[in-house]
Design a protein around this nucleic acid. Structure first.
Lengths: 223, 223
DNA sequence: GTCAAGCTGTCATCAAGCTGTCATGCCACG
DNA sequence: CGTGGCATGACAGCTTGATGACAGCTTGAC
């Protein structure tokens, strides 16, 4: 799950990025609308966290622009405390949710998760597939009833694969989801490595990660 | 367990804060509705103690506002002795309990605990897990039948972990529950410290605090 | 008011285990 | 049967957590 944070205050952006990172999201930070556009052109995001006051324009314009272009990516807007006008306006222009600054990082995380969930058409954070039971909120994983420990990266990968289960995920998509730009120099072999590690932990669960040579990986039920 | 006290009389607010603090709650004080809103936006609370007469408006309006916004956080209202109208009105508007001023600090503590308990869906203050027997009301802890003394912070941490047992609790979440704003500059290493201290006291009880590197801590039965 | 006891949080140091690289071997597909 | 993509074990670096020691402060007793 890759998130774009459009926010020009470094402290806020980095705090959010760190918090969301810990929650298994890969975050990119854009300090201007121009940066944001560049990021969006380069890669896809599961959601955007958008501050309204930016050095090169209003986030509301950006939002309107994206919606006019037919982009339905979930957008969570950050507004100042007393600008009711901005809040309402942003919602009118297609924002999916807003958060008043200063905000609680956990709430940001929870709301983002809710947005992404809604977007994916799912009702729950918890998913059971055959012998696999994964709860994104508690970051807990069970295989055939037994708790299995997994690391942050493994959970992030599993999250991605589950969210797109049945579909073949290109390796670079997985890579984008696991690492933001700041880790862009990581070798692509890493994905293969984590797939291997995940497979070991999912062994016997009834779901497996299939390799599709030259195309990517797909998580699905066995058989 | 973090509590927000909305009260404009410093003496009362500080007495309550000190008393609840001794009971293991982390308290923040807001003297106005504006402050209260700001606090709520910044962090999450297990409950709110709300005075009705505030310099910038009525606590009842605030309460109505929160409920309209879909906020279900438990609210305990403080009312003057003879304003039956306020009392009933506040309950109608979604208050969960009220206390008539002047009130006994111990009663405040007990009622808050009851509210939080109800919210968590538990019927009892006392929880037994394997060889561990924890009573949040009496702040008493027994391990394999033997009384074990624990400090305020240790009990607060244990309380949080037990309330979320089986789930991985991120360190910053634990931090938020243990410290209010006035202690915001405490090093995060403190959580590790108290986890270590708690572990010593829980040794051999059948429950343990697992470390999940990069994710957080989880309290669960051994095995 | 004084004093002792013990709780608190900081620091420094050490240990653990996650992470990503590399090398090597395997397999599918042409 | 060759080649490129993938699998996987081993490893070193480094982030993260564990823990003992200590100083400051709170608390409660007298």
């Amino acid at each position: 799950m890759r998130i774009l944070i459009v926010e020009d205050t470094p402290d806020v952006a980095e705090a959010a990025s760190a918090s969301l990172g810990r929650a298994g999201f890969a975050c990119d930070i854009a300090a201007t609308l121009a940066d944001a556009r560049a990021c969006i052109d380069i890669t896809g995001y599961a959601a955007i966290v958008l501050d309204l006051n930016l050095p090169d324009g209003s986030g509301r314009d950006f939002l309107r622009e994206r919606r006019r272009a037919g982009d339905l990516i979930p957008v969570l807007v950050l507004t100042a405390q007393f600008s009711v006008e901005d809040r309402v306006g942003a919602l009118d222009e297609g924002a999916d949710d807003y958060l008043v600054k200063p905000f609680d990082l956990r709430e940001l995380e929870a709301r983002l998760r809710a947005l992404i969930r809604r977007e994916a058409g799912r009702a729950e954070n918890r998913i059971a597939l055959a012998g696999l039971d994964f709860d994104a909120g508690a970051q807990s994983l069970r295989v055939n009833g037994a708790a299995v420990t997994a690391t942050r990266r493994e959970l992030a990968l599993l999250n991605l694969l589950i969210a797109n289960r049945g579909r073949i995920m290109p390796k670079d998509r997985l890579f984008d989801g696991l690492f933001g730009f700041e880790n862009a120099d990581v070798g692509t072999n890493t994905i293969e490595l984590y797939v291997a590690r995940l497979r070991k932990k999912l062994a016997g669960s009834g779901v497996s990660i299939e390799t599709h040579r030259g195309l990517g990986y797909r998580l699905d039920l066995d058989g």
